[in-house]
Design a protein around this nucleic acid. Structure first.
Length: 261
DNA sequence: ATGCCGGGCGAAGCCCGA
């Protein structure tokens, strides 16, 4: 069994105690982190390795940055989506991990936010999604267990946001974005959480402002997308809301799945 | 109510997130 998680930590330095606590409590085998907000050399590698994890980092100064932690050796490291090699924004990292003799290919994804929706930021988001779809299609051809994990900044459906009508024109919920998200699923990927849970109103993000956490005003925007080979092993998936309620919390909370041969 | 909170940077106030 392999437990695979993703968590936008909103600065790995500010969140290090929370991250270490959660690694001990949740005991994941693979963790994809987003918004680490530091260059690769500044990542707290020793502390994470002491907790029992190998580390791959694609960092950037001040903004963005992604990492993958794994109990196992990391191979085939890729630091950018094909066609985005010149991109200065560190939003993608992909590795192959040997978990107990079984290979899983995992990507840590920090998809652009895209707001405001009438700006070049939105155009950048749509282009980024098109390249992610193309690469996701290439990964399917490998016929491996693949997990695309991360902060997609996509609200898939009305039940994934506390006020769907209020968010209709937001870059996280616009139809252009939801269509592209579905086009990735339609290649043959399975969204782990929604496949196992039908209830609405389960979220992975609550804004720091306006008491959103206390009021339950959240969004489900962090996702685990599984190739058919991974989906065949999908046993459980859930959102761990505990980290969001702790002091010095990230505004996102982890979501995880277990794959059992 | 797009800046109510929180982080980075850098040492006050601005940029950014979703």
């Amino acid at each position: 069994m392999a437990k695979i998680a993703t968590w936008n930590v909103n600065s790995v330095k500010a969140r290090l105690p929370n991250v270490l606590d959660w690694l001990r409590a949740a005991e994941p085998d693979i963790v994809c982190l987003q918004e680490i907000k530091c260059v690769s050399d500044a990542f707290p590698r020793l502390e994470i390795e002491d907790a029992g994890y190998s580390v791959a980092v694609h960092g950037q100064k001040t903004y963005n940055g992604v990492a993958i932690l794994a109990r196992g050796n990391l191979e085939d490291v890729r630091e950018d989506l094909p066609g985005m090699d010149g991109d200065e924004q560190a939003r993608y990292l992909e590795v192959a991990v040997d978990i107990g003799g079984r290979m899983v290919r995992v990507a840590s994804i920090y998809l652009p936010n895209g707001n405001p929706a009438d700006s070049e930021k939105f155009t950048y988001k749509l282009g980024w999604m098109d390249r992610l779809r193309d690469h996701a299609a290439e990964l399917l051809a490998l016929e491996e267990s693949v997990v695309l994990a991360g902060d997609f900044n996509v609200i898939p459906e009305d039940g994934d946001v506390y006020d769907p009508d209020g968010w209709r024109e937001d870059a996280l919920f616009r139809m252009e974005v939801r269509r592209r998200f579905r086009s990735i699923l339609n290649l043959g990927y399975t969204e782990a959480y929604r496949t196992l849970h039908r209830e609405i109103g389960r979220y992975t993000f609550w804004d720091y402002q306006g008491g959103a956490w206390q009021k339950g005003f959240g969004l489900r925007i962090d996702h685990l997308l599984l190739s058919p080979q991974a989906t065949d092993m999908l046993e459980a998936c859930d959102i761990d809301t505990a980290p969001r309620g702790k002091p010095k919390a990230s505004d996102h909370t982890p979501i995880w799945c277990t794959l059992t041969p």
